[in-house]
Amino acid sequence: MTVDRYAHPVELTVEGVRYTTGGHTLLHGVDLTARPGETVGVVGPNGSGKTTLLRCVYGTLRPTGGRVLLDGTDAAALGVKDRARRTAVVPQDATGMLGLTVREVVAMGRSPHKRFWEQDGPDDARRVADALEAVGAAAFADRRFDDLSGGERQRALVARALTQDPGLLALDEPTNHLDIRYRLEILALVRALPTTALLVLHDLNLAAAFCDRLYVLSAGRTAAAGPPAEVLTEQLLAEVYNVRTHITTHPRTGIPNIVYLPLDTPRADH
């Protein structure tokens, strides 16, 4: 895909973001920074606040405290289209696609850049074709979106985000439903783009391989933040995930490699 088409990468700053609903606080003053062009991962166990934080970043939830800044501008002050020109989203689940083809779904990514009466032109068609090819979805571009497998849908949603020309790409479990080949391809593609990327991931080995920095959430608070090799320690994973692990540096890649031990494995010092 031609990468020089994209908007300049956005600097994302999350300052003391809190989110409370129904008397329950899901985020307790979370701070996060993603510098222009970085790939930053948010990890943590279920219920730790990962998706809530991501939704506060891209605007479907409004923080009850703190703020989200895009290039120093308070995102809450931006209009819907202006925010969409800066941030593209790959959600876990897609709605409102009934009866649309994959090509039509991907073309929706161009809407923030157009007036409501404007039709797609040749440049829009090229961007859609490039995005479909980039994610390996060109072969099923004319199929109905609702007839696709989970993995095929995920690739189409990533392609839709790419056509939006985002400065910030926010992805909630982008490898969900994908087989290992497409997990690696999608994350490699995201990392190669000249955009800032914020990813929620469950797979810690993939997070270590593709993210510049990680934020580990636990019960709505930041338990650790930094480069994967510093953050992913056996002690931290025991405290946050309540699992035993053996972590080494992979001899070929130089990145942390996490092996999960059976729950009844005795401690090494016993």
Score class of each variant (00 low, 15 high):
P227Y: 00
I186S: 09
A192P: 07
G167D: 11
A156Y: 05
A139I: 07
T51H: 06
I258R: 00
H250K: 02
R153W: 03
L198R: 00
V200I: 07
R5N: 15
T21I: 11
R143W: 11
E15F: 00
Y215D: 08
L204N: 01
V10M: 05
L54G: 10
V158M: 07
L261R: 07
L187V: 01
A268K: 04
G109C: 05
R267P: 11
L157Y: 09
T73W: 00
A134P: 12
D71H: 07
G72Y: 02
T87Q: 09
V17M: 12
T64G: 11
A207I: 00
D93R: 13
H270F: 13
L236E: 14
P174A: 03
E118I: 02
D172E: 11
V106I: 09
L204Q: 11
L206I: 05
T64W: 10
G41D: 13
D172R: 04
A238Q: 15
D264G: 04
E239A: 12
V40D: 10
T101G: 13
V105E: 10
A139L: 10
Y19D: 14
A134G: 10
R244Q: 15
R244N: 05
A197R: 00
A94M: 14
P227R: 06
T101E: 14
V231H: 03
V10W: 01
L193P: 07
L157R: 13
V106D: 09
G167N: 08
A134D: 14
P36H: 01
E152S: 06
H177R: 03
Y182N: 05
G22A: 11
A188E: 15
V231W: 04
V135E: 13
G23C: 09
R85M: 13
D130R: 01
T2S: 14
N205M: 05
A238E: 14
D74Y: 02
V243L: 12
D264C: 07
A137G: 04
G37D: 13
A75R: 01
A224G: 06
G136S: 12
G220N: 10
A88T: 04
L53F: 04
L157I: 12
T95G: 14
G150H: 05
K50Y: 07
Q154E: 09
R83Y: 10
F116H: 09
Y260R: 05
V17A: 09
T233S: 10
R153C: 10
T196E: 04
E15M: 05
D124R: 02
V106Q: 06
T39A: 10
V17T: 11
